[in-house]
Design a protein around this nucleic acid. Sequence first.
RNA 1: UCCUGGGUAGCUCAACUGGCAGAGCGGGUGGCUGUUAACCACCAGGUUGCAGGUUCGAGCCCUGCCCCAGGAGCCA
Length: 463
Amino acid sequence: MEPKLVSVKHAYEQPVGSLLKVRGWVRSRRDSKGVSFIELNDGSRFKSLQIVAEAGAIPEETLRQITTGACIEAVGVLTESPAPKQPVELKLQSLHLYGGADPETYPMQKKGHSFEYLREIAHLRVRGNTFGAVFRVRNALAHAIHQFFQERDFLYVHSPIITTSDCEGAGAMFRVTTLDLEHLPRTPDGRVDFTQDFFGKPAYLTVSGQLEAEIFALAFGKVYTFGPTFRAENSNTPRHLAEFWMIEPEMAFYDLHDNADLAEEFLKYIIGYVLNHCGEDLEFFHERIDNTVLETLQHVAESPFERITYTEAIRILQGASRDWEFPPVWGSDLQTEHERYLTEEHFKKPVIVMDYPREIKAFYMRLNDDERTVRAMDVLVPRVGEIIGGSQREERYEVLLQRIREMGLNEQDYWWYLDLRRYGSAPHSGFGLGFERMLMYLTGMKNIRDVIPFPRTPGNAEF
RNA sequence: UCCUGGGUAGCUCAACUGGCAGAGCGGGUGGCUGUUAACCACCAGGUUGCAGGUUCGAGCCCUGCCCCAGGAGCCA
């Protein structure tokens, strides 16, 4: 009989007595007299498959090479396990070693490592429990996001990664150039001559797909982007990356409250999806990373978010009996300590703060009738802080033009953005969700560098 | 970028007031009839981040630099 090739995940679903072939990487080998136990993991699920090699099943010389990290193919019969830790195990008949792993130098041990150390071996850390779980959840989350929008007839837009406009006027950007940095072409007045550069003008990596999404929203109604974005800020925190992924839905005919409704429905949907599809991985996070994760997620999936205005938020903060490092005053942005107080202590659940002062928000946010505030919203969640930022966009040509001017921006740079308001303008809204921050929230992981495969931070782009 | 803490064995850490650099884990060898981050015994393993300085003597004190973490700012 030919053995059936299956993943570890599917091996557990086969009937006892099946002859199976599995391939994967050895997590550990435990020897006893007359019997060896091999933990085999292939990434298909959290749990490994226990392979039992009785004395003489394979040559002693082969068995010695089956060490932590080795890659093997095993053929054997699925049998009920006498021990309680696993329902079934594979009784080994034959084994092929693809690649050994010298135990004297293999950097991954059976026991725990610090995340700082594991970041230095990002090419191997994915073979461990924690990062296996992280990247399975990451995969499931990406799927849930597409499913949510596709079920609701949103169009997936591929916004460009290279851009020639710093349209938000926010954040340092990475320059993209093919100019020879050792011999820069100069204009007569001594400046760098970007007309000789690849695009004929300065180019950068995008910081957001929002403005492009607006273009599509004003043709397709409901759209979303989901792609990498880049910030050249010298940010050294557990919540910032130089390269990260962002989801940015943009909807025509949505006002700020429709926008907030969508954001809340969206968060609940993707949390529910991960709760339903990544139970085994979430249990690990709950047990080993953060023992509040499961309750928090279930709570958020079920209870309504709090909604307050910025002005109310300031009032709540001013009434709080605590010493602020930065006392809350109307007109300045909420500090991290303020956001955390609101979501973690005052409301103890996600909070949507709306209608911020115009001075502290971007030019494209719609001006309210009071002319002091704009239709911005931030969604704050416990432990992570700001997870979503969004707004209703300014759809009135004259008002937008005036805002561009008063922010000191060059209106020529925004000619196509202004055109959207000149031709067939409509009220529209959107928001951005930081994909990695969402993952931190779902997994309880404390550092954003541990939820992205290959983190890019100041001074670090190895791998 | 600023503030704080740290860098000692492959990993995680200890080393009193400046006085012989140590433990657990991992690794090697041997043992153990079914293990579950297995267990027991023994063995090996060090340019104390880098460069200077003070001192009879520096892991420890001083100066400069590099790297890491936490907090802040910026934001997602």
